[in-house]
Amino acid sequence: MKRLLLALLVLVGAATPVAAESLERIFSAGNEAYYQDELRQALAKYDALVEAGVEDPDLYFNLATAHARLGELGHAILYYERALWLRPGDEGTEQALATARRLLGKRRAEREGEATVRTRPPLTEALAGPFSADGLAWTLMVLNVLLFGLLLARPHIHHESTRLAATVAVPILALSVAASGGLLASKLGAFEPGERAIVLSEGAPLREGPDERASVRKKARQGQRASILGSESGYLRVRLPGGSAGWMKEKDLGQIRPN
């Protein structure tokens, strides 16, 4: 109810300075709680902002760091990844993500003798990683206009050297359009079987069906990547990197790209 009222307040006065002030105030209150080591309270404030429709890399960074300090490394990795999705190449976030993964590996090694934590993303994702989706979309649009504009203008260019330059530029622009289109498609997950997600709980069961009684096929590792293929009655159909597919509870997974 409290969240609903807050969301209503935010929606009604979304464009007004009052609303912006409210969001700022909640954000500041969250930060204040964080500095006072009231991490759960800080998380509640940050979550309220997310519920209200704020989708900001700095907010996700703070969420991730609060979770990390609570030892909830699955959530921390998820929110760092989400912050990077929104603001690729953010050095501070990349370092914090690496720290969270290192800590997860260390914790696992303490428990099991040795551990391997995969940090390298798939190739297509790694290529598109440094770019934002909107940046790639703008690049694609501009290059597209340039390419076809040049194609239209080329027959009317009479100056020999200019015409030669246009002839050379056309295939380069065509390749650039294809590359930016491919990167954009990769960024939006077009080459993957489903939505990218992170496993939040250690040993989260991967079941054969969307039911508590269904047999467990495998136990997923915290911080592990997964692809969400579908959903049914509180369960998500997922595929893990090794190819294992099954059903996991919604609470055990977090989607990297904000909903």
Binding site: F27, S28, L59, N62, T65
Partner: peptide, 11 residues
């Protein structure tokens, strides 16, 4: 851990 962000556009 890196310090949290105190300034945000809250997009």
């Amino acid at each position: 851990w890196a310090p949290i962000r105190t300034q945000s556009a809250l997009s």
